[in-house]
Design a binder for these strands. Structure first.
Lengths: 151, 151
DNA sequence: CGTTGTAGGACTATTATAGTCCTATATAGC
DNA sequence: GCTATATAGGACTATAATAGTCCTACAACG
């Protein structure tokens, strides 16, 4: 499939949904799920992950819900991605040389490591607020399976 | 392995194995499989794919086998990757805007599209011959690569 | 104290990937 | 021609990763 998975997409949508509310008022998972066409239960799970990673704050009870724990401009795409699907790695060996059983026979590494660094850097630079404007319109139709729509 | 799958890794190893033989003599799937620690049947499948994509030539019969269809310096990592696992895409929508049902609500696209282009370009630049030296365990890498590292 | 919310464990379902089995066919050498 | 060794490839099984659901517990506002 793709590098960014469906759950990552959901997480991004959720974060964007929260960022738009931008207020003090917490937003409920149910509302977010509906707003962004995501399965409710999954939305809960993903928000929990985001909460454990301190990207969002939560309050329980009626009037409860979630809000971003810092400004959208201080949350990167990479932050969100890593919470949901872990780091985007080209190849497992790139993380820890020590783990590769074929080393030193295998060493695609050097050039790929450069690319890896670039990807990490790039994803780390893109921030949530950059996604806000483009996401702001109300959607036209789109119903059916909760299929993968888009990032 | 994440972005690059195991089969892609196998394909890369197979190609490297072939590139090292550098000769006129075709190399059999069985030999390659053993050399590179890969399941024989899978190796056959993958070589078939590489053959259909014209990256390798094949000859049947005893003394048959595979050889690269062009020089290692003219085969990119991207060529191999795309044969085995398809294009490395960050997100499905980046391929064709027309397919996205959430447009225009969603448009992470712009920044990600840049990254996508960079990845494609980079993978397209890395050539097989650049992997040869680093993959041969005999020689430590005291040697500068003659490969074309041009953008 | 009931309603509306999050927390989260434990499951099921679905899909993608990896890997195997089997049969057909080509060809070199006898 | 016959046989051994090779690729070609369809059809299958197995395994793993991902997506999604169900259920119970707990927190807090009114």
């Amino acid at each position: 499939m793709d590098v960014l998975r469906r759950n990552t997409d959901y997480a991004l949508r959720a974060m964007v949904g929260l960022a738009r509310q931008d207020g003090q008022e917490p937003v409920s998972a149910r509302w977010l799920a509906k707003e962004q066409d995501m399965p409710y239960q999954l939305t809960c799970k993903i928000l929990q992950k985001l909460h454990n990673a301190r990207l969002v704050e939560s309050c329980m009870g009626p009037k409860g819900g979630f809000r971003l724990s810092r400004k959208p401009s201080r949350i990167s795409l990479r932050d969100v991605i890593e919470v949901v699907q872990g780091p985007v790695q080209l190849n497992r060996c790139l993380l820890g040389v020590s783990e590769c059983p074929r080393w030193p026979k295998c060493a695609v590494s050097k050039r790929l490591a450069d690319l890896q660094r670039h990807i990490d850097g790039y994803l780390g630079e893109i921030t949530l607020d950059e996604l806000l404007t483009s996401r702001s319109m109300k959607k036209p139709k789109t119903k059916g399976k909760p299929g993968r729509k888009n990032v």
